Amino acid sequence: MSAQLVLRKADFFTGDGQAVAVADRYPQNVFAEHTHEFCELVIVWRGNGLHVLNDRPYRITRGDLFYIRAEDKHSYASVNDLVLQNVIYCPERLKLNVDWAAAIPGFNGAHGAPHWRLGSSGMAQVRPVIAQLEQESQKADPQAFDMAELLFAQLALTLKRYRYAIDNPSASEQEALLDKLITTLAGSLNRSFVLEKFCEQEQCSERALRQQFRTQTGMTVNHYLRQLRICHAQYLLQHTELMVSEVAMHCGFEDSNYFSVVFNREVGMTPVQWRHRSRKAA
């Protein structure tokens, strides 16, 4: 068995005194499973991909936000024009008197929800902060290190203000239409979703929304929802004792045979084979 890939501090930080840096991924390519000697915040700006975090698959796209601890193992696969930024940091190097644990889920190895979403307004607020943070992190003087940490504190608090749970439609009521659609899809894993009805409720053009969705995510609405359901099915197959027919029901498939066909087409193996392989690997 090959050794676990570990990303080292020395390859990403300019010196021992630097606490924060920015690692752009324009685009983010397929990346093997790895851990870090540091922690990171991951913000997805565009495109889509499969993000596997601690053996749990997430279909990610514009607005997804992750808090990654150093010990977490994750990888990227099936990427399509995926654009993201990693804000990396070393908790032990932070000097400001900030309640980091209250702002950053999982800070210093604690358990916390790693996956959140940002709406368009939140993304607009954090973009300039990250841009300024990136400029400071590329400098090597002590003042730049302090400025970067101040900006990181601003970023962490801004993310806390604007983030919301992925399946909480009420949290995105004031957000852009695309954000509301993505959140609604995430909350429709175990029930039917009809885009026409959504557009009627929101009084918008279905054709225009479909085009906007595809431009920003690189996927059709139906493909994205199907991928969300398959990822949820993979998680249930690995971590529960539900029968395949029950997993199908929990993931919005009324016909378990059709579920197995779709699962096999998307994953490359049957649900039973996936369950066996994933548990054996774990």
Rank of each mutant, 00 (worst) to 15 (best):
139 K>P: 03
124 A>T: 04
131 A>Y: 10
179 D>F: 00
150 L>Y: 07
138 Q>I: 05
158 T>A: 05
131 A>L: 09
83 V>T: 15
128 P>E: 09
114 P>E: 13
124 A>F: 02
86 N>G: 02
92 E>W: 08
125 Q>V: 15
184 T>C: 09
95 K>A: 10
181 L>W: 03
127 R>H: 13
154 Q>K: 13
186 A>E: 11
163 R>K: 11
174 Q>D: 06
169 P>H: 02
183 T>N: 07
144 A>L: 13
114 P>F: 05
184 T>M: 11
154 Q>C: 13
106 G>K: 12
147 M>A: 09
133 L>P: 05
112 G>C: 05
170 S>W: 00
91 P>F: 10
134 E>F: 06
110 A>V: 02
156 A>Y: 03
76 Y>T: 08
126 V>M: 10
122 G>N: 10
153 A>M: 07
180 K>L: 03
143 Q>Y: 12
175 E>F: 01
177 L>V: 02
152 F>E: 05
114 P>I: 02
108 N>W: 13
170 S>V: 02
85 Q>G: 02
75 S>F: 04
114 P>C: 07
131 A>M: 14
83 V>Y: 08
186 A>M: 01
126 V>A: 05
187 G>Y: 01
172 S>M: 04
167 D>A: 12
125 Q>I: 14
135 Q>C: 13
127 R>A: 14
184 T>L: 15
95 K>W: 07
101 A>D: 14
96 L>M: 10
106 G>T: 11
92 E>M: 03
144 A>E: 13
120 S>I: 09
90 C>Y: 05
160 K>E: 12
150 L>T: 05
81 D>M: 13
158 T>E: 04
108 N>L: 15
80 N>M: 04
120 S>T: 09
182 I>W: 02
121 S>P: 04
158 T>W: 01
135 Q>W: 12
154 Q>N: 14
104 I>E: 03
99 D>T: 09
78 S>Y: 07
105 P>A: 09
129 V>S: 13
159 L>T: 02
81 D>G: 15
116 W>C: 08
83 V>A: 06
127 R>M: 14
115 H>E: 14
146 D>H: 09
133 L>A: 06
187 G>W: 03
165 A>C: 07
158 T>M: 07
84 L>K: 00
124 A>H: 04
95 K>S: 14
176 A>H: 01
76 Y>E: 07
130 I>G: 15
96 L>A: 07
150 L>G: 05
159 L>F: 03
135 Q>N: 14
171 A>Y: 00
126 V>H: 04
112 G>W: 04
79 V>L: 06
132 Q>E: 14
135 Q>H: 15
163 R>C: 07
169 P>C: 03
124 A>G: 00
140 A>W: 13
132 Q>A: 14
139 K>D: 15
146 D>K: 09
79 V>F: 06
143 Q>I: 15
160 K>C: 01
94 L>I: 00
112 G>T: 02
147 M>V: 02
167 D>K: 10
159 L>D: 06
85 Q>K: 10
102 A>P: 07
99 D>Q: 14
174 Q>W: 00
105 P>T: 10
100 W>M: 02
124 A>S: 05
173 E>F: 02
111 H>T: 15
93 R>H: 01
77 A>W: 11
